[in-house]
Structure formats: C-alpha cells, structure tokens
Design a protein around this nucleic acid. Structure first.
Lengths: 202, 202
DNA sequence: ACCTGAACACCGTTCAAGT
DNA sequence: ACCTGAACACCGTTCAAGT
C-alpha cells in the first residue's frame, strides 16, 4: 500500500481501540490493536513511541472529564470529591487499573488531579513531607479501590463454610449489591476521618 | 540426558531462583529461570503447573516467617503489628509486589495473615460486611505501600521548580532518609485512628 | 518419574523498501 | 509523512521421545 493520502491511523482511534480491547479482555497487544484498526503492526510506530505511550494515553482518556469540586468546598470535601471522581473514572474501565500501576504518571490531567489533592492537603495545614505522605496514602487507597474493581471473583482462596472470621467476612460481603462500592465508601470516610484528626493536632 | 537418578530441580530451588531474578531485574521468565538452574525450560513443568504457581510460591516465600503479634495485644495493636510485618516482608523484595497484585491469594500463610486481621476487626466490634470493607481498605493500603517501595524514582513526571503544591511535596519528601517508610507510618496511624473512631461509634 | 529438544502461538520493536 | 512485510529477540505451554 505505502502512504495513503489520508492517514489510516489517528492517535485517538488508537487509544479508543486499545481501551476497547482492555475492557473486553483485560489487556491489549500491538498485533491485536493493529488487527482491530485494520492496519499493519509496525505502522503504529509512526504515531506513537510504543506500548507504554499508548497506556499513558489510555490513562488520560479514562480520567478525562473528571468533574471539579465546587469552589466553596472545604479541604476535606475537596478530597472526598476528588477521590470519588477518580475512583468513578476507573469504575468505568476497571481492567485498565492493573496495567497502569507502576507506570510513571505523565498525563497532564492526572498530574492536575494530584495537584488539587496537594493544595487541599496544604490548606489542611500539612507540611511538605506530610503532604507527600498523605498523597501516598490516598494514592494507595485510590489504586487499591481501582484494582479491587478488577479483582478476580475471589481475592482469597478461602473455604466458604470453614467458620473462620475471614470466611464470614467474605460471605457477608458477597451478599452486598455493590461490594466494592461499599468498601470504597467505608474506606473513604475512615481515611478522611483519620486525616482530619491528624490535621487538628498540628 | 533423560531422567537423572537424582532430580535436577526442586521446587525450593525454583522459587529461590525466581525470587533472585525478580530482585535483580524486576521480573522473571521461564527461559531465564531454566538457564539459571541449568536445566531445560520444559522440565520445569514436571515440578510446577506453570508461571502462576511459581508466583504464588514466591508470595509464600516472601511472607514466610512473619512474626506473630504478642498474645496480650489489643485489636488495634494487632492490626498495627500485622500490617507492619506484612509491609516489612515486601520491603525485602519490593519488586515482587507488582507481579502479585491481581493474583488470587492461595498461600496458606498469607490466608492466615488475613484471618488474623479479620479476627482483630471482629474483636473491634465490626460486623461481617464491615470486616470485609475494612479488610479491603487495609489491603489497598498494604499493597499500595508495597508497590510504593517498587515505584519508579518519580511516580509523577512533575517539574521540580514549578512552585506547585505537588512539586513542593515531592521535593520535601525527596529530602527524607526513608520516604516510603515515613509515608507508611503516617498512613498506618491515620488508618488505625479512623478505624478506632468508627469502632467507637458502633 | 523426570529430563530434552522441537514445535506452537504468541509478544514488542526495528528497519529497509515503497509512494 | 506514513504504510508494509520481514526480521529479531523474546515470551508461556505442550508434547513426543528418551531412560
């Protein structure tokens, strides 16, 4: 074929196809991506530096259009709002979360999200290193909540009728309509409560 | 060669070699594993069902010999002790953490760890579904802390001198002797504080 | 029972050749 | 500038053939 007068690939189409593959199968590969767009594998490299950049663009797509907190919100309301919005974004594409863990965040919108968290934490009175610590905790929680959504049906290979505390917990939780959502809201309030307590002691 | 009178491979040696490869390079593959033991790639399947089982055995090896909390400890002391022991185990092999996320926990010792957490949470007065929620939060935090140890030098691609709250936090944290450890202890106390507050309201 | 080598169906990335 | 096909150096798993 050689060069067409109109490009066959756009970065946007690439990201859309990658996200579709991730939603369907939990992963994507360049051969399958190329097949879906109807193009040769190697031509992808004319638009993107490789797999890692595609993943980073997927991160951007997922978190795009996160709503901003209302301007009058207090620092803890800002945190609740932002963390929930972040988690909601990943709830729409849970299987993307595991792929994005351990990759440096480059997407400007996601950086802006962490910047808003940092500002709220400074407003709470936390000093620089504490802001970083709090950020790490929030990040763990947010990533964990996203991973939780993509988790295998049973996180633990535990015997249902074994009468242990873990079996009881797993069993009771399985009867909830939205197990992961319930756990997220429970954890969010605990986290905010702990942060408020700590801020009050500064 | 065919079958030797003494087996060339033991599961223990397999796990040791896999963990060495992970510590050195952040990952392992069956070809490299076989090369390290001096054996053919396919013979590994005589001892183990595949890559996933090896990873689960690595999880067991890492968390083996986690110390038990003192018998007289209160429920929150138990949680602090256990979560710290879990995190310390992964601190010795940080690069293993990303590989174990999203894989069902089958190792009996790790199941026992979560059982001890569940018991402590029941003792605190939490009901079944709440125990599961608290467990999910603790799990997120513990996994996040382990991932944090393996994280790339910069989690966020942020401009150092940009004067933003995020840049300040990253900068201040980079001056700490043990950034990840500081964040872990900060988060652990916040988490326990939040759980205590919640338990008191039951 | 336990090893080997060959085979299979995958990966991500590079590069010369085309227009 | 943008596409193609071939090539390279990897993966995990299976299986017939050996002793």
């Amino acid at each position: 074929m050689a060069r067409p007068s109109q490009p066959l690939i756009s970065v946007d189409a690439l990201v859309t196809a990658a996200l579709e593959l991730i939603d369907e199968s939990g992963d994507f590969s360049l051969p399958r991506l190329a097949r879906r767009i109807g193009v040769s594998q190697s031509s992808i490299y004319n638009h993107v530096s490789g797999r890692e950049e595609i993943l980073e663009l997927v991160r951007g797509r997922i978190t795009r259009s996160m709503p901003l907190p209302p301007p009058a919100a207090t620092w803890d309301e800002v945190l609740r709002y932002e963390i929930r919005a972040y988690r909601d974004s990943f709830a729409r594409h849970p299987r993307a979360a595991p792929l994005l863990v351990m990759q440096t965040v480059r997407d400007a919108d996601v950086i802006a999200f962490y910047e808003r968290l940092s500002s709220a934490l400074e407003e709470a009175g936390f000093g620089g290193a504490e802001v970083a610590s709090a950020l790490a905790v929030i990040d763990s929680f947010a990533i964990g909540a996203a991973l939780d959504l993509a988790a295998p049906g049973n996180v633990w290979a535990v015997d249902p009728g074994s009468g242990t505390a873990l079996a009881r917990a797993v069993d009771d939780a399985s009867r909830l309509a939205d197990r992961a959502g319930t756990a997220f809201e429970f954890g969010l309030e605990i986290l905010l409560d702990g942060l408020r307590n700590r801020a009050a002691r500064i």
